[in-house]
Amino acid sequence: MVAVSVILALLAVLGVRQFVTEPFRIPSESMQPTLQRGDVILVDRSTRGTAERGQVVVFDGTGYFSSADGSTHFWTKRVIGIGGDEVQCCSPSGAITVNGDELDEPYLPPGVKPSAQEFHVKVPAGRMFVLGDNRENSADSRSQLGAPGGGMVPVERVRGEVRWIVLPPGRFGGAPDLG
């Protein structure tokens, strides 16, 4: 009877992780101030394989993004453009534009420019252009523009949208500025 209970509990945990929510730890400062290094977040698995402008998502960057140590892992970034969008930096006022409209980016750290790097891209269908909120300290689509895929990740690689911060206890709750 105990073995059946343990098996059912394990199946329930695996089912929740696969279909409901999945935890990830934020490994860097690239999403500050929205997410802090060391935060444990939960992503909504019902949104896997989808992306909308402004969402903060976790995605598998294997083959599109690389880490300093050469390992592959999941990345957490904000979706700036999706298939068909024209994303450019910068407008005369210094803003990033999407389809000619300036982005309002209240989530950027005070004093941080939307981008020190100029770019002008058209996002292919089924892909997304992503940036970290801490633009001065983020490896994101801008840093991969010359790489295979041009820094634009297939939307099918999205594991889910970030919904909650669960650790540390002082930051528990719905994450701010998550689109």
Rank of each mutant, 00 (worst) to 15 (best):
D140N: 04
S141H: 09
G151N: 06
D140F: 02
R159N: 15
E136G: 12
V162F: 14
F172D: 08
Q144K: 07
G151I: 05
A139Y: 00
V153E: 04
R157Y: 14
I165C: 15
G146F: 07
D140V: 10
P169S: 13
E156G: 13
G149N: 01
N137H: 15
G170E: 14
G132C: 08
P168Y: 08
G132A: 03
V162S: 02
R163I: 15
I165D: 08
E161P: 09
R171W: 06
V158W: 10
G151V: 03
D140R: 09
R135M: 04
V162G: 10
R142W: 03
A175S: 07
G149Y: 06
R142T: 03
Q144W: 06
S143N: 15
A175K: 07
L145S: 05
G160S: 12
V166M: 11
G170I: 09
G132R: 03
F172A: 14
G150T: 02
D133C: 03
R135H: 03
R157Q: 09
R157S: 12
G146P: 00
F172H: 15
G146T: 10
P154F: 01
A147K: 13
S141Q: 02
P169A: 15
S138I: 03
G173C: 06
E156P: 05
R159W: 01
R142P: 04
G151W: 04
E161Y: 08
R159Y: 09
R142Q: 05
P154R: 00
Q144N: 11
S143T: 15
D133V: 09
E136W: 13
G174Q: 15
R157A: 12
L167C: 12
G170K: 11
V166Y: 09
G150F: 02
S141A: 05
P169V: 15
R159Q: 13
G173A: 01
V158E: 09
M152W: 01
G174C: 00
G170D: 15
D133K: 03
S138H: 04
P168Q: 05
W164M: 14
